[in-house]
């Protein structure tokens, strides 16, 4: 826990937040105006969640709240009170084993600078929980809520299709 409540650093009223982040219970007194992204990054030092636009378009800050993908730049930390938050740091298994989508991203060179990558991984991970992604068009739609400036998305499309096949071996897929 941060020793000095962030409220004193942000000059604002504070509130206590209790949340489970990547399976660990966290409690902190935070400014009510502190965004969830800033809370994760600067209070909990989980810096894998990135802030790209602060207006909910680029998706770099995507995390899961109670299993649903959300833009942590558009949510306040206090809104996470009593809820479960999962970030990119929790995507790999406790033994460091990569999730299928992480492995596929590397294999298909679906990342370059890596800044947008966490958000893409979290968006795709949520979509994969809902079911297989079987076509290129479906993969593009899953990816379409986030922005990457480096890769041109081709590797990501391949990665999503492959990760879907890994997660749902019996599903049909375009990926060979």
């Amino acid at each position: 826990m941060p020793e000095s409540p962030s409220g004193t650093r942000t000059g604002h009223e504070t509130q206590v937040v209790r949340t489970t982040v990547n399976g660990v219970e966290r409690e902190a007194e935070v400014a009510t105006r502190l965004t969830l992204a800033d809370f994760l990054r600067h209070e909990l030092r989980l810096t894998g969640t990135h802030v790209g636009c602060e207006h909910g378009v680029c998706g770099a800050c995507t995390v899961h709240v109670d299993g649903a993908a959300v833009r942590s730049c558009l949510m306040l930390a206090v809104q996470a009170n009593g809820r479960r938050v999962d970030t990119v740091e929790g995507l790999a298994g406790p033994d460091g084993e990569l999730a299928p989508i992480q492995e596929a991203f590397s294999k298909h060179h679906a990342l370059q600078c890596g800044f947008c990558t966490s958000g893409f991984l979290m968006s795709v991970a949520e979509a994969l929980k809902e079911g297989p992604i079987e076509t290129e068009q479906a993969a593009r739609e899953v990816l379409g809520g986030n922005i990457c400036r480096c890769t041109g998305y081709a590797g990501m499309v391949d990665a999503v299709l492959e990760a879907s096949q890994t997660s749902y071996p019996t599903a049909k897929g375009e990926h060979a």
């Binding site: 990569l98 890596g114 990558t117």
Partner: peptide, 12 residues
């Protein structure tokens, strides 16, 4: 580079 970037361990 990939391992750290896909696990949220990059340092920007």
């Amino acid at each position: 580079e990939d391992r750290r970037l896909i696990t949220g361990q990059g340092r920007y």
